[in-house]
Structure formats: structure tokens, C-alpha cells
Design a protein around this nucleic acid. Structure first.
Lengths: 142, 142
DNA sequence: ACGAGCCTACGACGTTTGTAGTAGATCTGA
DNA sequence: TCAGATCTACTACAAACGTCGTAGGCTCGT
């Protein structure tokens, strides 16, 4: 089912994931100050996240509630990916293709990914054939 | 820039892209009947898309306006991708990694993509090293 | 014990999205 | 020619989102 999170909710979840467990105040302060909403805004979102089942209150310290995530970052991200893939017909191929086309994904990226998988797949056993383990740093497009 | 489209707007745009040029009625009928909103709902969205600059009226047939897209499908999709990538820190690597992890992207996918790129790169006869900025023109879909 | 402060619980409000009804203009086939 | 079919241009409205303010309850240092 994977809860659907809005952009703001996601940003706040990022703070929660980073802190593992935190009060509204801590969460607010964790947010990049450029886009840091008022304390009560964060509070409201946390409440909504609670209703959605994305976080829960675990205890209380002083008079402040401490929240912690109920959904993992990975699960949330996966939901985003699935939504996007759905637009691309369910398969990641078109997505990949476009990433390549716009230069956001290079041949090097693909190769290193491939060898990483190959390595993972052969799981410890010997077979470093597709090895070309390059440590390439990516460049950003204009 | 790249206009931001909501889910419904995107679905309607898909119809417009498919038809190239169409009336509200045609657009509505192009939508998969499972999720086909009322005629006026489609009309409302088209109007909003018009305000956003995603479509425009090109002419009139009978008493019906004929609309056509102003933004390409690719551009719109790209906007979606960029938004997603942003969540993943701007780089497609984490995205890829997760696709692989969930089995949505297989080693085969990657290999075939790789060779496809390799072919494209050499095809252009330029240097076969990095495919970062190819302005490749491709055939329009029908 | 008390007051400055921090927290919570709510309520509020403007926007955006999804969804659609209605009135009246326009077209078209018989 | 004219009545029904079709369109457009509006209007409406609820739910979701983003954003806060406020009232009043708890805490903690002094």
C-alpha cells in the first residue's frame, strides 16, 4: 500500500529518518534553514503523518512528544519510484532511456552499476570477469 | 521552467499527445474508460492546462475548439524525472540502485541498455567515449 | 511557589486538485 | 426551419496541502 506522501511531508520525513526519533522542535531544526516552516507548520504535518501512519509517538520527554518513523525511507522512496514508473508504462526502460538521452545517466554510470550488480550476484564467489570497477564521479548537467 | 502537471493533468495530456490535436470530446473518449471523468471535468482540466501553457486552441471545428499540446511529452516526463531525482539527491545512482534492489531493473535490462548506448554513441561517429551531450533527433511516434 | 518559556491541541484560511452541474450559444439533420 | 444534440463558459464545492496563530497546559530554574 505504501503511504502516499506529499512533497512537504517527504521533506519532513527526511528529517525524521535522519534523527531516527525526535521531537517536533528537533525535526524543525533539522530542516535546511532555507525552507524551514514555522514550528506549528511542522507540528501540523507531523500530526498528518501520524494519521497517515508514517510516524508514531513513542514516548514523552518533558512535555514534548517524541516521534519516530513507521515507514522506512526506502519504502517511501519506492512509492515515488513506482508512481513515476507507472507514468512510464510500468517498465523502467523508458525511464532509463530518457535519463541517458538527457545525459543524466552516462555509460560509465551504467557500467559501474552493472559491475556492482554482477559482483553482488556472484555473491562472494570468485568471478570478477565484468570487473571494470571504476570510481567515476558524476558531473552535473548545465 | 517545465510546467508542473498534476496526475490528472498528465493523464489528459497523454490523451492530447496521442491525438496530436483534438476536441474536448475526443480527448475524453481517448481516456481509458476505467478512469474516464465527466465531459466537463475534462473540459475544466483542459482549460487549466491552457492557462498553464501546456496546450492551446488552434482552431474551431463546428462549435468545438480544437486543442493541441504546447509542451512535449518528453519535456513533461523530464520534469517528473527531475523532481524524483531531486529527492534522490540529484543523482540517478541511488534511483538505479533501488530499482535493482527491488528487482525492477535486471542485469539484462542494464546490459541491453548499455549496448544500445554504445551503438548510439558510435553511430554518431563522434568519440565513442562518453555520451553526455548528444542532441539526437528521433522519429516521432504515431 | 512562580513566572518565563516551551509544547500541545485546535482552529483557520488561502490554494490547488479533482469533479461536475447549468445556462445559454451554436450546429445540424430532417 | 427548428428542435434536439453538442459545446462553451461559468460556477460550485469538497478534499488535500501548505501555512500559521492562539489558548492554555506543563516544566524548570530560581
Amino acid at each position: 500500500m505504501a503511504i502516499k506522501l506529499t512533497k512537504l511531508e517527504l521533506e519532513i520525513m527526511e528529517a525524521v529518518w535522519a534523527l531516527r526519533s525526535a521531537s517536533v522542535r528537533e525535526i524543525q531544526e533539522q530542516l535546511p534553514e532555507r525552507k524551514r516552516p514555522a514550528y506549528t507548520t511542522v507540528q501540523t504535518i507531523i500530526y498528518r503523518l501520524e494519521e497517515k501512519g508514517a510516524v508514531r509517538r513513542v514516548k514523552k520527554i518533558g512535555n514534548a512528544h517524541i516521534f519516530e518513523p513507521l515507514v522506512t525511507r526506502k519504502a517511501a522512496h519506492n512509492r515515488l519510484i513506482d508512481d513515476l514508473l507507472h507514468v512510464f508504462g510500468g517498465s523502467p526502460r523508458m525511464l532509463m532511456a530518457q535519463l541517458v538521452e538527457t545525459g543524466q545517466l552516462t555509460l560509465e554510470d551504467i557500467r559501474s552499476l552493472e559491475s556492482a550488480i554482477a559482483k553482488l550476484a556472484s555473491d562472494g564467489s570468485s568471478n570478477p570477469r565484468t570487473a571494470a570497477t571504476q570510481t567515476n564521479q558524476r558531473r552535473r548537467r548545465k
